[in-house]
């Protein structure tokens, strides 16, 4: 799967537009200079050799250099960690809100709460993240002045932070720096909630449908007949068995989360990988774009692997 995705990335970004030097600088440089640079970059060799090189490089963790000479791997590590932090908190928010609502909707199908839950799910899904983010900015920053509008940390604190990975929340937490922590959390709330709401709708729908399905099962009937309290029936018997499909589909939503994070980062000027990707796209920096997209491809595959492992732990019938 990794191989197929990487091949697709290579075909799309290297073969389709031609070599990166001509694509980015064609028309701006004299042909001789172009040819010299193409030769220096090795882009005049057969495409199949370049393809082999690309695969080798990606596997050894070398993603090439940006136009500014920065290592793409470094960019991925530094900015990717900011995206990771955002995604973790968004996911936590989505689960904390979505699972209880979905459970209640599933238990009382077609009740008033169920209708509310479904509508809530539809509306959060229908509102583009950047629109929600915009509304939050208007309300909490402009009107109420509670939260900072954008960025991951205040400019004054930014100077004190090392040039390492941008896992600022965890960094501040481990240092026990309450001042920095509160600043980071304030910056984190709006982006995380915005991105989280996007996924919440999906979580509600998933939990609801699967709980409805499992509640129809014979073992649920049997559990009820044995006089087990309804709460426990729903949690232990219905929800537990609904988890496998829920987790599987949630894994597919990793792609949704990644797409959403690009938009969220752009809205809140969050220094994540999506933000950088958009910059590179605007600069027509093909190599950097190719590198970042390759990483996204690998991330998607790794997540699907993790999902399989999680399912194997949850469901004793799944064995590899």
């Amino acid at each position: 799967m990794v191989w197929i995705l990487l091949t697709l990335v290579f075909l799309l970004l290297r073969v389709a537009p031609g070599d990166p030097i001509t694509a980015a600088l064609g028309g701006q440089l004299p042909p001789a200079e172009l040819a010299r640079r193409r030769h220096a970059g090795g882009y005049d060799r057969p495409i199949i050799v370049q393809y082999g090189d690309y695969l080798k490089q990606v596997l050894s963790g070398n993603l090439g250099k940006t136009q500014q000479g920065e290592s793409v791997t470094h960019v991925v590590l530094v900015n990717g960690s900011a995206t990771l932090e955002l995604s973790i908190f968004a996911l936590l928010f989505a689960l904390a809100v979505g699972v209880p609502i979905g459970l209640r909707c599933g238990r009382r199908r077609d009740g008033a709460f169920d209708t509310f839950g479904r509508l809530f799910g539809i509306v959060t899904y229908a509102a583009p993240v950047f629109f929600l983010g915009l509304l939050f900015q208007l309300l909490f920053t402009k009107r109420l002045g509670w939260l900072p509008p954008s960025g991951q940390v205040s400019a004054t604190l930014q100077a004190e932070i090392s040039d390492g990975p941008h896992l600022l929340f965890f960094e501040a937490l481990f240092k026990g720096d309450t001042n920095a922590l509160s600043d980071v959390v304030k910056h984190l709330i709006m982006p995380a909630v915005t991105l989280g709401l996007l996924v919440t709708g999906v979580v509600i729908r998933l939990v609801r449908v699967n709980v409805i399905q499992t509640l129809k099962g014979d073992y649920v009937e049997a559990a009820r007949a044995r006089g087990i309290p309804e709460r426990r029936v729903v949690m232990r018997h219905a929800f537990h068995n609904a988890l496998v499909p829920i987790i599987t589909v949630m894994g597919l939503q990793a792609a949704l989360l990644l797409s959403g994070s690009v938009l969220t980062e752009e809205t809140f000027n969050w220094p994540g990988i999506g933000n950088r990707l958009i910059q590179y796209l605007q600069n027509r920096d093909y190599l950097a774009v190719q590198g970042i997209i390759s990483v996204f491809a690998i991330v998607v595959v790794v997540i699907s692997l993790l999902i399989d492992i999680a399912n194997a732990i949850l469901d004793p019938r799944v064995r590899y």
Binding site: M1, I4, A16, F296, V300
Partner: peptide, 25 residues
């Protein structure tokens, strides 16, 4: 099936951006 699965797994917006980026030129 392989190609379609790969496309399906990929973040949809990024896919659209990349194609738009390539087509825009």
């Amino acid at each position: 099936v392989l190609i379609m699965d790969a496309l399906f797994a990929f973040p949809y917006l990024l896919l659209a951006i990349v194609v738009a980026f390539l087509l825009a030129g």
